[in-house]
Design a protein around this nucleic acid. Sequence first.
DNA 1: TCCGTGACGGTGG
DNA 2: GCCACCGCCACGG
Length: 105
Amino acid sequence: MDNEGFFQRAYGVVRLIPPGRVATYGQVARMMGEPRKARYVGFAMHSSPGLSGGVPCHRVVFADGSLAPGFAFGGPEEQRRMLEAEGVGFLASGKVDMRRFEWEA
DNA sequence: TCCGTGACGGTGG
DNA sequence: GCCACCGCCACGG
């Protein structure tokens, strides 16, 4: 459960992201006290139980607002749909409008 | 011990 | 504004 300890911490933070808001991998890592492990956070999301497991990993995006290329729920398109359903706005470029929807703890 | 790998991030062309 | 390269960290072969 060691590695999972890190995973659980990541999930714990992600669970705090309110609907209609998004957080970046680096942001999550920073809240865990380990800003250098952004990549590891990404891996945690990849292995996450998903929204059904209480981990809204679709609310975690890249620092520039782009979505993960290999999203597990059915592609970035599905992820975008879920975010839009929560009220998150996208730019014409297909990226999240971070200026308005980035989560501020 | 060195090399390769990855849902990242910042910088430079 | 998009693309490419480099730096980070932990892990496995």
